[in-house]
């Protein structure tokens, strides 16, 4: 099977500091793939390069068979790559429904269809009851789910999630894990960048571990947790 996302040797430097150092990974259609690593490991920089917010200094990003690095974010979104933001960025003065509708309108033939699609996504993410509320009035867990809903409404093939579980309580994490599984089952490939280890282990089929901007391991959750370098540099330090 051809990979949906193929990242080849990407590198990003900031004023001489190498944030991401020749990282390569492949995400296959239909899977849930996770990138983990301690703070400052370069996860968000890697994420931004895949999402089009930054251009890599070296290396390539290929999405669905075509070069994707250097493309602006809105073009990537059109090709089926949707992202969320680590610090959620709902449109505060707009209603929940409007937020999702704006996501949905890219692929919808008209605004009515966009609203219908938005409604479906909101139901999927348990936000339908809050559809008339302004986004700024939502609680953090609701806002995180709205962020997912909006990205999902764009009808992506690959959903990029930047720490959607950070800052949530365990029950809320369980809820979002269930929702993400459901989304994945409906045919959306997911790439998540996470800090919350337990949920990631439970959710992801394959995990890629970064440390100081470089890859130290990749494999199934079991393989990764047994990997000596991972134990030493990451799990050991943070005492899973």
């Amino acid at each position: 099977m051809t990979p949906l996302l193929d990242v080849r040797g990407v590198t990003k430097r900031f004023r001489g500091l190498t944030a991401v150092d020749t990282v390569s990974l492949t995400v296959t259609e239909g899977e849930i793939f996770a990138v983990i690593g301690p703070n400052g490991a370069g996860k968000t920089t890697l994420f931004n390069m895949i999402a089009g917010a930054m251009t890599p200094d070296a290396g390539t990003v290929t999405f669905a068979g075509t070069r994707a690095d250097g493309l602006p974010p809105h073009e990537l979104c059109r090709r089926g790559l949707a992202r969320t933001f680590q610090i959620v960025r709902p449109f505060p003065e707009l209603t929940v429904l409007e937020n999702a509708t704006i996501g949905a309108m890219m692929r919808a033939p008209d605004m009515e269809a966009a609203r219908t699609k938005a409604g479906e996504v909101l139901r999927q993410l348990d936000l339908w009851d809050r559809r008339e509320a302004k986004a700024k009035s939502l609680t953090l867990p609701d806002r995180k789910r709205l962020e997912c809903a909006r990205a999902l409404a764009t009808g992506p093939r690959l959903l990029l999630l930047d720490e959607v579980m950070a800052g949530l309580r365990p029950t809320e994490v369980d809820r979002i894990v269930a929702i993400l599984r459901e989304i994945n089952r409906s045919g959306v490939t997911i790439l998540l960048i996470e800090h919350v280890m337990r949920a990631t282990m439970a959710l992801a089929g394959r995990i890629h571990v970064l440390h100081h901007g470089a890859t130290i391991a990749e494999g199934t959750p079991e393989e990764v947790t047994r990997h000596p370098k991972v134990l030493e540099s990451y799990l050991g330090a943070e005492a899973l």
Binding site: A51, A53, P72, P73, H74, C77, R78, A82, R83, F85, R89, P90, F91, P92, E93, L94, E98, T101, I102, G103, M105, M106, M111, R150, A151, T154
Partner: peptide, 18 residues
């Protein structure tokens, strides 16, 4: 709707294909 999205948060709007 694209305008409203841009007004509220241009970066987020871009990520939604606008």
């Amino acid at each position: 709707h694209a305008w409203l999205a841009v007004r509220e948060d241009a970066e987020a709007a871009r990520a939604l294909g606008i």
